[in-house]
């Protein structure tokens, strides 16, 4: 629901990540990692990004979203597993004392800038 704000943050971070010697170059691709537990709808984000990127160095850039599964580790039996339904107890010993290893990402992994 806050995809527009997120799109604007992406543009800010991506623009700041363009190296000094490439200022003004066109960004062709932004590689994102989005955890399945994050409150982001990839389609909406893509739509908002397209609008927000207009008339910036990122206009027309492709937003590549890698969805990251929710994985956890049990603090009691050390079991590591992927959570694919909203049940957050250990798949082996049923303990509720768990630590999430992934699934909350909303990260810019890399950008690809056109060289000329």
């Amino acid at each position: 629901m806050h995809e527009m704000g997120v799109a604007m943050q992406i543009i800010e971070i991506a623009t700041a990540s363009i190296p000094e010697d490439m200022k003004g170059a066109r960004v062709e691709r932004i590689n994102l990692k989005v955890g399945k537990l994050s409150a982001i709808v990839p389609d909406s984000l893509g739509f908002c990004f397209e609008i927000a990127a207009k008339e910036t160095q990122l206009e027309g850039a492709e937003l590549v979203i890698e969805e990251i599964p929710v994985t956890a580790r049990c603090k009691d039996c050390d079991n590591e597993w992927t959570i694919d339904s909203p049940v957050f107890s250990c798949s082996r010993c049923q303990s509720g004392s768990i630590e999430l290893l992934s699934g909350r990402e909303l990260d810019i992994d890399s950008i690809e800038v056109k060289e000329d």
């Binding site: 971070i13 190296p19 909303l106 992994d109 890399s110 056109k114 060289e115």
Partner: peptide
């Protein structure tokens, strides 16, 4: 200038960093 390429720049930052 004829050889056009793309440079990949590692960023690895949380979008909600700020």
């Amino acid at each position: 200038i004829e050889s056009r390429g793309t440079r990949k720049i590692k960023v690895v930052r949380r979008v909600l960093d700020a």
